[in-house]
Amino acid sequence: MPEPTMGPPAETLAEPGDEPHRERPRRVVVTGVRTGRARADRARADRARADRARADRARADRTRADQARTDPGRGDRPAAHWSVVRDLDEQTELGAVYVRSLIRAQLRSALATCAAVAGVLVALPLLFQVPALAQARLHGVPLPWLLLALGLQPLWIGLAVRHARRAERTERDFLRLVERS
């Protein structure tokens, strides 16, 4: 995919970190060269965030309640006051840059989750080729049975929950970003 040719949005999606998002507002990472302007943007964003966060959440909740009643996302509700929303709708270059940044962020976290799953599933059968491991016992129960029937499921659950949270956080950040600009 070609890199954006015109002025990219000063802030793009934060790479979701591992700290719980409620404790402090998301950090906004500035892509590309960190210019003075970008840094200023970030500082301004930091100052504004505290009082915006609450309003955001309230609005998102209202919108979600709206959505739940109607066919989500496909109605003809006016999108008027968000300028970037019009960009997104009309497929301008700027809108495309925004969408692409969202898709990339989501794809990155999806691939990270897939890689974790694949890593475990590729490594385990190889590990159990080692007779010492395949025959190991814990309290008389074969270790492979404990691992395959009980031990790994929490890992999958953890990965799933982590991914769902990450993806939602990425979307929240995107909404905030769209609204700000």
Partner: peptide, 12 residues
Amino acid sequence: MARMHLPEEIVI
């Protein structure tokens, strides 16, 4: 692509 990945809050 935009429709599949944009959150529902953004209506296009």
